[in-house]
Amino acid sequence: MKGRYAAAAQPRRLATGSLLAVALFSMVLPAGAGKADRAEFDRLHAEAEQARKKADSIGGQWRDTAKFLKQAKAAADAGELDKAMKLARRAKDEGELGYRQASSQKGNVQIPSYLK
């Protein structure tokens, strides 16, 4: 019984907590952000582009990475920086994951055990 109450209460506490956090964040963000965001985006976009190229250099690029980079740029140009950052981060993740995937198999391709 007590557990149920605790379980029911917890999300509310969490919700209050995150609400507070969001509130704090939204108070803090606009102050230091604004102009820095575009620069931050450009930096992230450049990193993502580099990650994509690195993956591509060993045949490990994923299908949508270049598309995300393009969309990110377009969003940034349209002033939608949150969306732009999200897309660029995704492209960077993909570049890094694709590189790791391909490099981990270079000279180490796993033939299924049932085919040996």
Partner: peptide, 12 residues
Amino acid sequence: LMLTATAALAGK
């Protein structure tokens, strides 16, 4: 009260 809470939890 408990029933309401449980229902809310189950609903969630």
